[in-house]
Amino acid sequence: MDVFMKGLSKAKEGVVAAAEKTKQGVAEAAGKTKEGVLYVGSKTKEGVVHGVATVAEKTKEQVTNVGGAVVTGVTAVAQKTVEGAGSIAAATGFVKKDQLGKNEEGAPQEGILEDMPVDPDNEAYEMPSEEGYQDYEPEA
């Protein structure tokens, strides 16, 4: 019985440690998101679009440190934060509304985080759909 109880105690310690790591990862992701939003706020009209992409990228980098179902929630929060940063930029006159959601080359930025393969159960990952990809044929 002692062996059984000791095993359960060790398992509990492992769960607590994993929860603490997840909590730490979420806190880091939130900190990076805040950094990115402050970065966007300090940019001029020309830099705002690039700044919004930076927020998304920093958040995406930190999301990889967070495991399990938390990833889905962090990704949703990050996307809403990026959308909010863009709205703030438009409201303050840093950028025109028609410039939001495009990178410096004018290509749409939507789907940055949505296409990231995420499995809350950590069982399997699927690649994003290939609808947006084109076949590449090298020139002879």
Rank of each mutant, 00 (worst) to 15 (best):
M1W: 00
M1L: 02
D2Y: 12
V3C: 08
V3L: 07
F4K: 00
F4T: 00
F4H: 00
M5S: 04
M5P: 00
M5N: 04
M5I: 00
K6I: 11
L8Q: 00
L8C: 01
S9R: 14
S9Q: 08
K10S: 02
A11K: 00
A11T: 06
K12L: 15
E13T: 10
E13D: 01
E13V: 07
G14W: 05
V15N: 00
V15C: 04
V15Y: 14
V15Q: 00
V16C: 07
V16R: 08
V16W: 05
V16Q: 12
V16M: 11
A17F: 10
A17E: 11
A17K: 13
A19Q: 02
E20D: 05
E20L: 01
K21D: 01
K21Q: 07
T22H: 02
T22P: 04
K23Y: 09
K23M: 15
K23A: 08
Q24C: 11
G25F: 13
G25C: 15
A27T: 10
A27Q: 13
E28T: 09
E28C: 03
E28Q: 04
G31C: 11
G31Q: 03
K32E: 00
T33S: 06
K34G: 04
E35V: 10
E35F: 12
L38Y: 08
L38G: 08
Y39H: 06
Y39C: 07
Y39M: 02
Y39V: 05
V40E: 00
V40T: 02
G41N: 01
G41W: 03
S42W: 14
K43H: 04
K43I: 09
T44L: 06
T44E: 00
T44P: 01
K45S: 07
E46V: 15
E46R: 00
G47D: 04
G47V: 03
G47S: 14
V48M: 09
V48G: 01
V49S: 06
V49C: 09
V49H: 00
V49W: 11
V49G: 04
V49M: 15
H50C: 10
H50R: 15
H50T: 09
G51I: 15
G51T: 14
G51L: 08
G51S: 12
V52R: 02
V52T: 00
V55R: 02
V55D: 01
V55A: 11
V55S: 01
E57W: 06
K58S: 09
K58I: 15
K58Q: 05
T59K: 01
T59Y: 00
K60N: 05
E61R: 02
Q62D: 03
Q62M: 10
Q62W: 05
T64Q: 03
T64M: 14
T64W: 14
N65E: 11
N65L: 08
V66D: 01
V66G: 02
V66F: 14
G67N: 01
G67K: 11
G67I: 10
G68Q: 03
G68E: 03
G68R: 15
A69C: 03
A69S: 07
V70D: 05
V70N: 02
V71M: 04
T72S: 01
G73N: 11
G73W: 13
T75G: 09
T75S: 05
T75L: 14
T75R: 07
A76F: 03
A76Q: 12
V77E: 01
V77A: 12
V77Q: 02
A78G: 09
A78T: 08
Q79G: 10
K80H: 09
K80I: 11
K80P: 03
K80L: 12
K80M: 10
K80G: 07
T81Q: 05
T81N: 01
T81H: 02
V82R: 08
V82K: 12
E83I: 05
E83T: 14
E83F: 12
G84P: 03
G84M: 08
G84Q: 14
G84Y: 06
A85I: 15
A85E: 06
A85Q: 07
A85C: 06
G86L: 11
S87E: 01
S87C: 04
S87K: 06
A89N: 02
A89E: 04
A89G: 11
A91Q: 08
A91C: 05
A91F: 15
A91D: 06
T92P: 04
G93T: 01
G93M: 06
F94D: 05
V95N: 15
K96T: 04
K96Q: 13
D98L: 09
D98F: 03
Q99F: 12
L100R: 02
L100A: 07
G101A: 15
G101K: 11
G101V: 05
N103V: 08
E105V: 12
E105T: 12
E105H: 13
G106M: 11
G106K: 11
G106C: 09
A107N: 11
A107F: 12
A107M: 04
A107P: 09
A107S: 04
P108S: 12
Q109F: 03
Q109E: 11
Q109G: 02
E110L: 01
E110S: 02
E110D: 07
I112M: 11
I112Q: 13
I112E: 10
I112N: 09
I112D: 05
I112H: 13
L113V: 03
L113T: 05
D115R: 12
D115E: 10
D115C: 09
D115M: 12
M116L: 01
M116E: 10
P117V: 14
P117Q: 13
V118D: 13
V118G: 08
V118L: 13
D119G: 15
D119S: 02
D119E: 12
D119A: 03
D119T: 10
P120N: 04
P120L: 04
D121R: 07
D121M: 06
D121V: 14
D121H: 14
D121S: 13
D121G: 10
N122S: 13
N122H: 12
E123P: 01
E123R: 11
E123H: 02
A124E: 10
A124H: 13
A124M: 04
A124P: 13
Y125A: 06
Y125K: 04
Y125H: 12
Y125M: 02
E126P: 11
M127F: 14
M127S: 12
P128T: 10
P128A: 14
P128L: 12
S129T: 08
S129R: 07
E130M: 06
E130P: 12
E131R: 02
E131T: 09
G132F: 10
G132D: 14
Y133F: 11
Y133P: 15
Y133S: 04
D135S: 11
Y136W: 10
Y136I: 02
E137G: 13
E137T: 05
E137H: 04
E137K: 03
P138T: 08
P138H: 07
P138M: 14
P138N: 14
P138L: 14
E139F: 09
E139Q: 08
E139N: 09
A140D: 15
A140K: 15
A140H: 05
A140E: 12
